[in-house]
Design a protein around this nucleic acid. Sequence first.
DNA 1: TACAGATGTCCGATAAAATAAACAACAGAA
DNA 2: TTCTGTTGTTTATTTTATCGGACATCTGTA
Lengths: 183, 183
Amino acid sequence: MEQMSRNLAFQLKKIRQQRHLSLDDVAKATGVSKAQLAQIEKGEANPTVSTIWKIAAGMRISFSSLLQPPTAHYMRFSSKDVPHVDEDEGRYRVYSIIPYNPERGWEFYKVEMEPGAVSRSEAHTEGVEETVMLIKGQAVISAGDMNELLDEGDTLVFSGHQPHEYRNTSEGLTIFHLILQYK
Amino acid sequence: MEQMSRNLAFQLKKIRQQRHLSLDDVAKATGVSKAQLAQIEKGEANPTVSTIWKIAAGMRISFSSLLQPPTAHYMRFSSKDVPHVDEDEGRYRVYSIIPYNPERGWEFYKVEMEPGAVSRSEAHTEGVEETVMLIKGQAVISAGDMNELLDEGDTLVFSGHQPHEYRNTSEGLTIFHLILQYK
DNA sequence: TACAGATGTCCGATAAAATAAACAACAGAA
DNA sequence: TTCTGTTGTTTATTTTATCGGACATCTGTA
């Protein structure tokens, strides 16, 4: 969420400086007060859509150019404090490595399954694509008429639009990475 | 402005109904209050970016899909109350037919020039492209080393990144359409 | 130096966005 | 019918986005 404010702050300041405009100039061109513009450029604001509209219209730019994240940027997700959810009485553990982000459109999980653990998922609405990369152990993934056994190094891509099931068929811990791609 | 609210209203309601969710469901998934969601779906709200972020993230959709205007829609601009600006002592008249819109990225003008009228424009910042379609009369358009004479039916496209000039070289009124394309 | 203009920041007041809770309308089930 | 749960709407309250104006800082100029 304040991811957005940072992008906005960066892009607005960049465009304003590229055009050699002062805050007063932009305020005059957009109808947004100088104070508010200053707050936005410092990333300390949470503007309304009408404010963003005024800025985009006044500056003759698109929304996307205002909301785009700065290029050549990187982001690190620490292995500490990764939120996780348990199923099947703690024998199926899901770690959210990269949470969903509207700009990105996908999310990334690490999953650990104890021997014999099972997880069932309802059908996700419309176009969700699941990508499973098996790191350690063995798992069977079923959906409709699909029934695939994955060993270490195997990767499976399938549509999540129907109910599906993950099952650890090995004697030990099974670990895999999971990407959920939306829309 | 409230163009935005309408799009948002339409798209959110559409997605919610496609997925057979109630306002309570969406409220739980996004962390945005039911009351606010109801207002948004009715187009009576002016949400903040953080609210939109929460909705997009919770519903696993992108911003663009939330802000896109409904397809198969049309919009009429009446010839009445078209705002216009005068230059060169009223001998150069600019009518704003379609004002700039951040989703569209361009704007549309009708221009009327009395005989001998001249208009000079400063260089527009960065990537502005001008398209002139001459409807009636005759005009010379100059920019840098370009110097083009346009007759009825002629069209000229050029970059507006340097100072340029419009001049009516005919004996009568000259009329042309002008599209300004940004970015 | 003093001055004037321009720039970005800060502050109090106000309008409005967001929430939680109460409410009405409606459904299906006993 | 009555009851119970689910839906969307409305209301009251809190929170905050926005504005206008005051302020401090820094120019370049006389």
